[in-house]
């Protein structure tokens, strides 16, 4: 038993439980896939694999590049961080997430919607824009409030002490 275990580890690269889990997974997946693919193999396979590719090779690079661009454009504050960054990130992320999930209605892609439901699809773009505006407004208000509180909390000091008051750079920060 032990020798079999070791041989499997050497030739296969994992424990027997791994092989069993993979065999079970692939067998069940293949059984369901026979029906899933029946009569439309290419189209369904393209959707299945395409979903992963579009996410990994389009969506992730897209939002990562956007984030990187934002970080570079906003530059760094005197503490080495970008103080406004998250006030931009949060509303952009939330608004983008809503668009990602509800884009067929927001962008009026849904052909039968009006006929099926007796409802107009025109409201969704308006709603999304208003929500987006509200998110940015809330973020801006939060930023303004933070600034105000910071100014109130800081006791009046002689101007000479200002330079010495910089916070220490965060540990483990710069590479």
């Amino acid at each position: 038993m032990n020798r079999l275990h070791r041989r499997l580890l050497r030739s296969y690269g994992a424990r027997p439980v791994h092989l069993l889990a993979m065999a079970g997974c692939l067998a069940l997946a293949a059984y369901a896939a026979l029906q899933l693919l029946a009569g439309r193999t290419l189209a369904v396979a393209a959707w299945f694999v395409g979903a992963a590719l579009v996410h990994d090779l389009v969506l992730v690079p897209l939002y990562s590049t956007a984030d990187l661009t934002a970080r570079r454009t906003l530059g760094r504050g005197h503490t080495g961080t970008t103080p406004y960054l998250n006030h931009l990130r949060v509303p952009v992320y939330l608004s983008g997430l809503l668009l990602l999930v509800w884009y067929p209605l927001i962008l009026r892609r849904s052909q039968p919607y009006r006929g099926d439901t007796a409802l107009s699809e025109d409201v969704f773009l308006t709603h999304w824009l208003l929500i987006t505006a509200a998110l940015f407004a809330a973020s801006a208000a939060h930023l303004a409030l933070r600034g105000l509180l910071q100014r109130l909390r800081r006791p009046p000091r002689p101007p000479a002490g200002d330079t010495a008051k910089r916070p220490a750079p965060p540990p483990g920060g710069a590479s």
Binding site: G24, C25, L26, A27, L28, A29, Y31, A32, A33, Q35, L36, R40, A43, V44, A46, W47, F48, W102, P104, L105, R109, S110, Q111, P112, Y113, D116
Partner: peptide
């Protein structure tokens, strides 16, 4: 749920069999 039927086939069969492929993995 948004009646945007761009997927390749009947929702019932795609979502049902797709679920079994997914849940196996």
């Amino acid at each position: 749920i948004q009646l945007h039927y761009i997927f390749p086939g009947s929702f019932y069969t795609l979502h049902f069999y797709g679920a079994w492929v997914f849940i196996a993995a």
